[in-house]
Design a protein around this nucleic acid. Structure first.
Length: 551
RNA sequence: GGCCUGUUGGUGAAGUGGUUUAACACAUCGCCCUCUCAAGGCGACAUUCACGGGUCCGAAUCCCGUACAGGCUACCA
């Protein structure tokens, strides 16, 4: 039996005409330096922060070079597939504005000339190449059972030998054509393995864009390329897809660096040009003083949807991702406040090779800064968008009080050093609820400080309303009135004066304004009281004060 | 067990043999400003770059070894 006949026996009805596909997917017509790269997740659940970072880097590298960024779904493991997994990935990318040029756009649709972009739909392509390899004598069927493989493994472990299907452990490699024919005839299940030409004693150097040259022993393991269900393994699918889709740069997680020798070997043996590689370190999390990989299972912040739910602006997440991607970005951005991420040039050499801890605090800080420089109207719109999805009641209140809310968000905003108090949109309600009667009506806990005697408080409020309140005062006049009020009741008009002679006064102007603040909002900490009073207006102020005094 | 990778402060990190008494940012603490906050201003925070050797006039930077951490070693990706 010839190799050709063997191939027909193993893959009847499958073509081995690889030229067909080579012609079908021609070179891309792009600039010489254009980067063609891809995000290639498995649809096994939500998108992990580390994956999002990788996707972000891929998108950025492609954009910077006028290249192509595409989405390829790696669903060759049917067991791990998750319902609506593809939609989930697409939604997450959309939520963070990582746009794809080609690839899956829904569970069933896709765009681009190099598809299908879902691996399970590429079965025929892989099988054509597998058949071709068998014909060339570069691949062979393996009939070993899981048990046999496990046995070999145990023997290897006991003897402290390298583990794997190689050399004399590669039993099926030595099967004669007759033996194979007999086994196939008997209906024994088989998989297809790649016939590795490598030797473990040979050293090879592989260049990684982030890590530089890495030295490995050559691969000598006969890896599985086609599983018993007829689908390829990751390694084989990677080689075929990235060749056919003309990927120039493979950017992926660093769990793949150890597979580099086998990937390069396969590319070379198939006669394909291997792509450039860049391996990204994982994002870590600290637990009990130890670093570990940020985990989908244990860490809610690992899920990309977490940030969407929190209401962290997309732009802020991107800013943080960019600081993770390129260590020099933060400083660049600091010096170029008026520029955007698009103006920054991504550099593979500036990607950290060590896995850093994921710093949620820093993300919140970036977010806080970002929100502080937005226009009040933008804050309103973004907060409303967030609330419509995650807090319907708050959304309703915002909608009913649009002008008011915008004015509220405008307090100490749009100035050189804006107020920075919202780190995300889910944070806002907690800080401003008291400004809305809808939320304020059931208040019963007032955070009074030094002055907390009901009678004294009532005295201050009454005098303020009777004698000092005016809705036409500017800020200085307003504050001067509070000083007068303080003086009249035996409080120091200036804090300094009080500090110099604490025995002469009951307290100082700050204590009095605290009373005015707490009786109005129930809270001891609020933005500028003058601004708040101006916004609430006389009726509401008097109403709240009178209600307070009656209780 | 084997093969890879990484290791600079509480955190992210700059740094590629000599103006580094180790940048910058986040966090923390202190002071100032201040009607409370949020900010803002100023300052403190690694005599030392995992550890041990070596090369060199000189090392966080180069070499060797050790330790620790992570990854891979599946018909999972």
């Amino acid at each position: 039996m010839t190799n050709k006949e063997l191939a027909d026996l193993l893959l009847p009805g499958v073509s081995s005409d690889i030229e067909y596909y080579e012609k079908k997917y021609p070179e891309r017509n792009l600039d010489k330096n254009a980067i063609v790269t891809r995000f290639a997740p498995s649809p096994t659940g939500f998108v992990h922060m580390g994956s999002l970072l990788t996707a972000f880097i891929e998108r950025k590298a492609a954009k910077d070079s006028n290249g192509i960024f595409y989405l390829r779904i790696e669903d060759t493991d049917q067991k791990r597939k998750v319902e609506n997994g593809i939609e989930g990935i697409i939604d997450d990318l959309k939520n963070f504005e990582i746009e794809i040029d080609e690839g899956a756009i829904s569970e069933t649709e896709e765009v681009g000339q190099y598809g299908p972009y879902v691996q399970s739909k590429r079965k025929e392509i892989y099988q054509t190449y597998v058949k071709y390899l068998i014909e060339q004598g570069l691949a062979y069927p393996c009939f070993c059972s899981h048990e046999e493989i496990e046995q070999t493994r145990q023997i290897q472990e006991k003897r402290k030998q390298r583990i794997g299907y190689y050399g004399r452990f590669a039993k099926c490699r030595r099967l004669t054509m007759d033996e194979i024919a007999q086994k196939v005839k008997n209906g024994e299940p088989y998989i297809i393995r790649f016939k590795s030409p490598g030797s473990f004693d040979n050293k090879i150097k592989i260049h990684d864009l982030i890590r530089g040259d890495i030295e490995f022993p050559e691969n000598d393991i006969d890896d599985v390329i086609m599983k018993s269900d007829g689908l390829p393994t990751y390694h084989f699918a990677h080689v075929i897809d990235d060749h056919l889709m003309h990927t120039t740069h493979v950017i992926r997680g660093d769990e793949w660096v150890s597979s580099l020798p086998k990937h390069i070997q396969m590319f070379k043996l198939m006669g394909f040009e291997p792509p450039k590689y860049a391996h990204i370190s994982p994002i870590m999390k600290e637990e009990d003083g130890k670093k570990r990989k940020l985990s989908k299972r244990k860490d809610p912040e690992a899920a990309v949807s977490f940030y969407h739910e929190k209401g962290i602006p997309v732009e802020a997440v991107k800013l943080y991702l960019m600081t993770l991607a390129n260590t020099n970005f933060e400083q660049w951005y600091d010096c170029n406040k008026d520029k955007t991420i698009d103006d920054f040039k991504f550099d593979f050499k500036k990607v950290s090779a060590s896995g850093g801890l994921f710093d949620v605090t820093k993300l919140y800080n970036i977010s806080k800064n970002y929100i502080s420089y937005l226009k009040a109207e933008d804050v309103y719109n973004m907060a409303l968008t967030w609330a419509c999805e995650y807090d319907k009641q708050f959304a309703q209140v915002l909608e009913n009080n649009k002008e008011f809310a915008i004015n509220l968000f405008n307090i100490e905003r749009e100035q050189k050093k804006p107020r920075k108090d919202y780190s995300c949109f889910s944070d806002i309600k907690n800080q401003i609820w008291y400004m809305f009667d809808e939320f304020y009506k059931d208040v019963d806990n007032y955070e009074f400080q030094l002055i907390n005697d009901k009678e004294e408080i009532n005295k201050i409020l009454k005098l303020y309303m009777d004698k000092y309140y005016s809705n036409s005062d500017d800020k200085d006049a307003w504050f001067n009135k509070i000083k007068e009020l303080s003086g009249e009741l035996g409080y120091a008009k200036e804090v300094k004066e009080y500090k110099n002679n604490p025995d002469m006064y009951k307290g100082h102007v700050g204590d009095v304004s605290t009373v005015l603040r707490v009786a109005l909002t129930s809270k001891s900490t609020t933005p500028d009281l003058y601004e708040i009073m101006k916004l609430l207006g006389k009726d509401k102020i008097f109403d709240r004060y009178n209600k307070f005094m009656k209780n």
